[in-house]
């Protein structure tokens, strides 16, 4: 188990290093060079002298190795760079937006996992029946829809035609409520985006839970529990589900890793001020530094999610737990 974790840590370190190095190299490999990277479309309009002055100011005339070390040093201090397009330090931009993304995707993950576990259990319990086929096919159909389109259709239906939910944004325009009224306003705005993301992510959890449950229900311990006279419902929840949830828990922890990066297009549709929408705006404005910072942030959270999955699993499965102690 220790060896396993050590191997994983090495793997994550490699991923992190690759992401960092990619971030360092990409702007320097661009046709326009790093000036283009930093200044975006402004670069073409600057005089060569001014450009050279900026390059020297930023240390871009030094050797690559020197630049690389400086790059890593800045990141170690938590300095993500500066966005000329926004006129703000990127760290501030990201910090403003991160909570909203976490709120959105975190809620969606919880909803999707809960629904996937419930529906997957039903499908497994009645495997081969119409209910089972219907649930699997339905979830497959939903997963085949592009998430941004799903969002647009939900907005058009529940927002535009039925008027149940606001169309976009995080708060009603001109709203001045505070406290729980404000929270309610935000919740109403987040309902459709959360639904969109949750519906899109339902398929994976449902299928995993169904598969896991079907194989657990065939295990001998289910028969023994029934033979003990334990009621069917309790066998289902205390014996079968407790075992079938193990892979789902891992899936959930991995999903936490996508909390930051998983909502690019959804946030775009609903005009929510999160990291995803930030990436979209950065693409449109060719604001490369922001794009890179967002990518780095997403990579770090994905690694954190993976690490969490590795650490959580032994807590849930006594077979792995004891090995870990040994």
């Amino acid at each position: 188990m220790r060896r396993f974790l050590a191997g994983r840590l090495v793997q994550y370190a490699v991923v992190l290093w690759l992401a960092l190095t990619l971030n360092f190299l990409l702007p320097r490999l661009m046709p326009g060079g790093p000036a283009q990277f930093l200044l975006g479309d402004e670069a073409g309009r600057l005089s060569p002298e001014l450009k050279a002055a900026i390059m020297s100011e930023l240390g871009l005339d030094r050797s690559l190795g020197h630049q690389y070390l400086a790059f890593l040093g800045r990141l170690a201090r938590g300095d993500l760079g500066y966005s000329l397009a926004r006129g703000e330090p990127i760290r501030k931009v990201v910090a403003d937006r991160l909570p909203w993304t976490v709120l959105l995707t975190g809620s969606a993950l919880v909803v999707a996992t809960w629904a996937g576990v419930a529906l997957g259990t039903v499908a497994a319990w009645r495997r081969g029946s119409r209910v089972d086929v219907g649930l699997v096919m339905g979830a497959m159909l939903l997963a085949s829809m592009p998430v941004f389109w799903l969002g647009m259709v939900l907005v058009a239906t529940f927002g535009l035609h039925l008027g149940w939910f606001p169309l976009f944004g995080l708060r009603t325009a001109g709203a001045t409520q505070t406290g729980w009224r404000a929270a309610l306003d935000v919740a109403r705005h987040l309902a459709l985006p959360v639904l969109t993301l949750a519906v899109h992510n339902l398929f994976g959890t449902l299928l995993l839970m169904r598969h896991s449950m079907v194989s657990v229900l065939g295990e001998d311990f289910v028969l023994l529990a029934r033979a003990k006279g334990v009621p069917a419902r309790r066998v289902m929840y205390r014996h079968a589900m407790r075992n079938a949830l193990l892979p789902v828990a891992t899936h959930f922890a991995l999903g936490l890793g996508f909390v930051v990066g998983g909502a690019t297009v959804t946030e775009t549709i609903f005009s929510l001020p999160g990291i995803g929408r930030l990436m979209y705006e950065a693409v449109l404005a060719r604001d490369y530094p922001v794009l890179q910072a967002a990518f780095l942030l997403v990579t770090v959270t994905v690694i954190a999610g993976n690490l969490l999955a590795d650490l959580v699993y032994p807590l849930l499965d006594p077979r792995v737990r004891r090995e870990a102690r040994a």
């Binding site: 690759l18 661009m30 990436m279 993976n306």
Partner: peptide
């Protein structure tokens, strides 16, 4: 297979977006 593990961990869509943008 270590390489495969590494690629599977990298966040797919954000990296695609980053590369496509460049």
């Amino acid at each position: 297979m270590r390489l495969v593990d590494v690629v599977l961990v990298v966040p797919f869509l954000p990296l695609v977006i980053l590369l496509a943008a460049y």
